[in-house]
């Protein structure tokens, strides 16, 4: 994916520079870019070190697990088809909680494991089940409590208040995630709040 990006950006700029007559600037831009990228990485390094350390402290203290337990109430509504499977729900909750706290390296393995289990539940069919769609959407629009990269880059660029964007980022991600979840549930094949589903739930309770 990155290879394709690289190729297209380079070819477009090559063609454009010939058209606009900026060919001489092109070569020096490469050197500038290399220097910039190292400068940027260095300014990222300290911040990443501090935040990843802090996040690991929280994870170690069991914050991710605690948050996951709090979240399971909402998540049961979002994943009605597998709400009875505590194994899958646990994976999903841990993944979302880790994502919220900014530990994406911990979030991905949980999400992948949940995805594999959902696949088995789906009978390894070739069409994504409702829960799989919801989970993949949750994975790519998750609520972030602290956007480390954004704040660090703003700081590195000399912003007066690098943290000023925290509140709008939170609002934006909450609204966008809710919107995606809503769309996913509205287009789901198995409507969770449909009459049939309720009936079957009622029957299950009776049996119990």
């Amino acid at each position: 994916m990155i290879g394709k990006c690289f190729f297209w950006i380079c070819s477009v700029s090559m063609v454009c520079s010939v058209i606009t007559g900026n060919t001489s600037k092109l070569a020096s831009a490469v050197f500038d870019g290399c220097a910039d990228s190292i400068e940027l990485s260095l300014s990222l390094l300290g911040m990443m070190c501090l935040w990843c350390g802090v996040i690991e402290v929280f994870r170690d203290a069991g914050f991710v697990g605690a948050l996951a337990r709090r979240l399971s109430f909402i998540l049961k509504r979002l994943f009605p088809d597998c709400a009875d499977d505590s194994d899958i729900m646990g994976d999903i909750a841990s993944s979302v909680a880790a994502n919220m706290l900014g530990v994406s390296s911990a979030a991905t393995p949980f999400a992948l494991s949940a995805m594999e289990k959902l696949d088995k539940r789906n009978g390894c069919g070739d069409t994504a089940s409702d829960d799989m769609v919801t989970l993949s959407l949750l994975g790519c629009s998750s609520v972030s409590l602290f956007p480390t990269t954004v704040v660090t880059l703003r700081y590195a660029a000399g912003s007066e208040s690098p943290y000023a964007v925290l509140v709008p980022v939170l609002i934006c991600s909450v609204i966008c995630t809710s919107f995606a979840m809503l769309l996913s549930r509205l287009t789901a094949k198995n409507k969770p709040l449909g009459k049939e589903k309720r009936k079957s739930l009622g029957k299950r309770k009776e049996r119990l």
């Binding site: 990155i2 900026n22 831009a29 990485s41 390094l45 935040w51």
Partner: peptide, 28 residues
């Protein structure tokens, strides 16, 4: 771990920042 992640990002970041810097210089 955070430092390792940042270090492992440097090669792809370098390539892409170079490409974008070219894009800016070309007027595209």
């Amino acid at each position: 771990e955070g430092m390792r992640t940042t270090f492992s990002l440097i090669p792809s970041l370098t390539a892409l920042i170079c490409a974008l810097s070219m894009l800016r210089a070309s007027g595209a």
